[in-house]
Each structure stands twice: as C-alpha cells, then as structure tokens.
Amino acid sequence: MPEILTITLKPAVDYATSTEHVEAGPKLYCGTPRVDPGGGGVNVARAIVRLGGSVEAFVVVGGPMGDRLLTLLAAENVPTVECRVAGETGYSLAVTDAGSGEQFRFSLPGESVSETEAQIILDRIYNTVQRDEFVVLSGGVANGLPDNFPQKVQAAVSQRNGRLIVDTSKAPLLHLIKSPSAPLDVLRLDRSEIEKAVDRPLLSIAENLAYSKQLVERGVAQIVVCGHGSEGSVMVAGDQKFFCHAPQVPVRSKIGAGDALVGALTLSLARGDVPEQALKWGVAAAAATVSTEGTALFELADTEALLPQCRLERC
C-alpha cells in the first residue's frame, strides 16, 4: 500500500466545552474543555491512524501553541513532520449551549507567514513527499500564502508522481475551480462551497451532481466528492456518478466530520478500493464523527458498524 502524507498549512489547537446557556452580557461559566489537535490535514491523519492506516502529518507550526499541537499529536501516535515558522499557531473554540444543544464555533487564526517562509514550506513539502505517495492537502491556507499555493503544492507532488487529494476553502478553492492548472486526483468540497462558487443555492442532489460533473469535465479534478448535508455525499469519477446515503445518527457535533470523510476515503483508495467503495467508507466515518461530542473523532468500531448502512446509488 502506498504511503499517505497529509499537509496542514493552517493547523490549530481545538478547544471544546459547554455552558448552561449562551447569551450576550453575563460571564459564562464553562465546563472543563476537551483539547484536541486540529486543522484539516491534522484531523485527516488522526482519522487514518484510527482506521489502522500508515500516515505522516506535515504541519506548519510556530510558538508555544504549535508545541502543544505537536504534543497532542504525539499522544495519539500520529507521526509528524514539523515545518517551523516564526508566527504563533492558531486555535479554535467550540461552545455548546447545554440547554438548546446548539454549538457556537470560533476560529482564532495564527500569525501570517512571510514570503521567505512560504518558499521554505514549499521546499520542505517537495523534500518530504515520497514517490507514488497519496498526499492530502486539507484545511485552510495560512495567512500570507498566495491563493495559488495549493497549485504550487500540486506541482511539487506531481514531480514525485504522487496522487493529490485537496479539501480547502475560500479564495484558494475558488482559484482551483476557476483556473485549474492540471486535474487534481480528488477534490472534496461542501455543498455550501459549491453554492459560493456558482452564487446560488443547490437545492437537489441532481444539481449537486451536475455541477460536480462540470468540475470533472473542465479538468478541475478526476474525482469530485461533494457533501449534501445530512443526506450524504455525491461523487463524480470520470463518467460515473454516485450518491451515498448517510446513515441516520444522533448529531452531537459536526466538527471534524468532513476531515473524517477525507481520511477514510483516502485510506480506502490507498488500499486499492474502487472510488465508490472509498466514498462509502468516508460517509460512514463522517456519520460516526457527528455522533461524538465536541472535537472528538469517530471510533473504528462505530465506523465499521455504520458502513453497511451507507447505501450507494448509481446515478
């Protein structure tokens, strides 16, 4: 099985807690927080380890918060490749209103990276990627990096004949969609991200599939996976189209669900599964994650139990 490398350009230390009621004005007393390593690629790597896969997590870190992130990853036995920068790593806070069950999420960004550090990061990525490796670039792009940085990573990975899976957002995602340099192996995005790209709501699975198919036809990616809320996820792989129905589970926290999907999907592909089977694994891992509290990820046994309930439909 090929090795897997995840890349996190904007990691964070994730805090999750709860309070009796969230309201403006009074001081809110919270419970003891749960603290986890976070950021797209970090969570993807954590998911792959939980599924029994072999992975390395490349993380751009700085300051005491970066040190804490690495300590948390070591506690979960996630092998890391650290790329040090001068600025402090960011963190996030999720507070659940115990009365209503609503979750309030706050992201506090790390400091910007310099132009010199940007080149150091890219060079370090190139030197870390192994030949024929699966590489996952997941999460936000750090402040100070250009919008086309994912495509710079793509060029570095292609020189190693690697397979690149991208799950990013905001301006870098829009740049990938509007100005593709070469097809990614896999692009994963949420329905809300597609809606921003087309500037209109996608009300049906058919609309979601149609736009995902356009991305494949335009050469943005060979495989496009797009979430459709609690209903499940669509996949367009070449001329094949699928919809995987998500199992019904109690929703406690959506944090990390998309990353769990990417981790399980990537590991399944690396093990040689066909894309639609990899999609089922991803949907099962995402469903298992939303039924956990705060920033916790799924358990392997829960994912395996939900897998048969992920009904695949060829469209």
Rank of each mutant, 00 (worst) to 15 (best):
V234G: 02
A270M: 14
P247N: 09
G256C: 09
S230P: 01
E207M: 05
V249D: 12
L267F: 05
D190S: 14
V290H: 10
Q240W: 10
I255S: 04
G219R: 12
D239W: 11
V290Y: 05
E195G: 07
A182R: 01
G272W: 14
P250I: 09
L265T: 10
G229C: 10
V198W: 10
L265Q: 08
T266L: 06
A221F: 08
C244W: 04
T292I: 05
V186I: 14
L184G: 02
D185G: 01
S181K: 11
V274I: 08
K213L: 06
G238A: 03
G258M: 05
L187H: 06
M235W: 01
G272H: 08
K196F: 08
V220L: 09
G294Q: 06
I223L: 09
A206D: 13
V234L: 03
H228E: 09
D239V: 08
D199C: 08
G227T: 03
A286G: 15
P275F: 11
E193N: 10
A278G: 06
V216P: 00
N208P: 00
R218L: 10
D199R: 11
I255F: 06
A182P: 03
A260T: 09
G219L: 15
P247I: 05
L202E: 01
S181I: 14
P275V: 15
K213H: 13
E195S: 04
P250M: 12
E207P: 01
G258P: 07
S268N: 07
R252Y: 08
G238Y: 14
V186A: 00
L203H: 12
V274H: 12
G232N: 07
F242V: 02
S192K: 11
A285Y: 03
Q222Y: 14
T289H: 06
D273H: 13
G263R: 11
E217R: 12
V283Q: 02
A221G: 13
P201G: 09
A284G: 11
R271P: 04
S192C: 11
A264I: 03
Q248C: 04
D185P: 05
A210C: 01
V236L: 09
A197Y: 15
T266K: 00
A287G: 13
A284T: 15
L189W: 00
V198T: 12
L279I: 15
V249S: 05
K254T: 15
V224Q: 07
A221N: 11
I194N: 03
E276S: 12
E231V: 07
I223E: 05
S253C: 12
Q240K: 13
S181L: 10
S233N: 13
S181T: 15
V251Y: 07
A287P: 00
F242P: 01
S253M: 04
K254R: 13
A237F: 06
Y211D: 02
S204T: 14
V262F: 09
G238I: 04
Q277G: 04
E193W: 09
G263S: 09
F242Q: 00
P183V: 03
S268A: 15
I223Y: 05
T292L: 05
I255W: 00
F243L: 07
L202A: 05
I255T: 06
D259G: 00
A260E: 03
G227S: 14
S233L: 04
M235Y: 14
E293R: 09
E195F: 09
K241Q: 14
P250V: 15
L209C: 01
G256H: 04
E276N: 03
A260I: 08
A287T: 04
Q214F: 12
L265S: 00
L209H: 02
A221M: 08
S291T: 15
V274G: 06
